[in-house]
Amino acid sequence: MNRRNFLILTSSTMAAISMPLASSPLHWETLAAVQTHLFPSDVDSPGAKEINATGYLHFVLTNDPLEREFIEKGIIYLDKIGKYTAGKPFLDLSHKEREQLLRRFEMGTNGKRWIRKMLQYILEALLTDPIYGGNPKEIGWKWLEHQAGFPRPPINKRYHLL
């Protein structure tokens, strides 16, 4: 596929593609792989896995149906482009191929918005109160030497319950 067509494809609105929206295990596995790529683990610092980015994203999407639709369409679409350009699903791509695919995805308006949201939720999993499922045992706060405020939210006063 030439670059021009690709740009047209990625910037067309995702909403136009009709896809089944059941959150199959496949999508979650792919979403988790994208998160790991965007925020890898290191010996001296937590990555997507350690901060429970996937569990956190699950919490967010459960409470926001419109957002869930956007994230799911995005991951299906990303995977589709991967299959189209590299002939493989995202999960089978090498690190380099994943990087190339995401960088290409970033060139479309919706692709960029989608990646930015994925990054935003990773940062939320890293730095919001552990009561929401991310930042287990304050691993993100500890890594960045961050001092939280008080009083901290108890389970029955999480934002979606207020």
Binding site: P151, R152, P153, P154, Y159, H160
Partner: peptide, 12 residues
């Protein structure tokens, strides 16, 4: 009802 919760105050 007020806690130091960035999600509640500022992100949602």
């Amino acid at each position: 009802d007020f806690f130091k919760d960035e999600l509640a105050c500022c992100l949602r």
